[in-house]
Design a protein around this nucleic acid. Structure first.
Lengths: 112, 112
DNA sequence: GCGTATTGCTACAAATAATGTAGCGTGATG
DNA sequence: CATCACGCTACATTATTTGTAGCAATACGC
């Protein structure tokens, strides 16, 4: 571990290019990142609730992603417990709404 | 390897839930997937050109992602060589346009 | 034809990340 | 005090990524 303690040590891959999209793309391109944001899109969830929602993903990764997402300012841990999106995180999630409908169209154009 | 030869053997993680978004989220949540789509968004690129654009990512992953993305119907290999987005892939990329502006806002709200 | 250069793509060892299972410390509730 | 859920962590096993090298095929100039 000791990954999030070193903060932005590894940083984000594409940030070298100076384009923040790359940083965002790299962050969101890590396993479970998108899924976590998606599951939190409606209501906050406890860490264990999130784990259940995420198809029983291992707590190790979940915790890692949660830390990254928190550091990025997309997710926060409520005082009474439970993870929820920040205002910024909600903004980001708005971006994914069209993805839902796209996914439906996508399926219909494949084997299904 | 022998991963893409088995086709959809492993399938996509969230597809068990029956919701195609999960499948899409899992596919896009693999390393370099988002980045590849992003780099192809404007014009097609050769495999090596894509590699350069993707910060010299290893050809192994690139090829793996390319195969998955092709199978998903988002990317295609042009007859004259070079990878490009399909119509469906372009549709998907449209979804990410807001991400660009969001990333800019995101940076301004952090350290910068 | 021969050397060179490109294309898409693969092999393979080393490094890194994810999985799965177990469990910690803390705080609330019984 | 026993129990439960919370956020979070350890750790061995397994999967994925990295980095470097190189293949077969298709062109190019000479």
């Amino acid at each position: 571990m000791a990954k999030q303690s070193a903060s932005r040590s590894r940083s984000v891959r594409g940030s070298r290019t100076g384009r923040p999209v790359m940083a965002l793309l790299d962050l969101l391109g890590r396993r479970w990142s998108l899924r976590i944001l998606w599951e939190l899109r409606e209501a906050p969830l406890t860490s264990r609730g999130l784990r259940t929602a995420c198809d029983e993903a291992s707590p190790t990764v979940l915790q890692a992603r949660l830390s990254e997402l928190r550091e990025a300012g997309f997710v926060e841990l409520g005082e009474g417990g439970g993870y929820g999106l920040t205002a910024l995180g909600r903004e980001l999630c708005e971006t994914f709404i069209p993805l839902h409908r796209f996914a439906e169209r996508w399926r219909s154009k494949r084997g299904a």
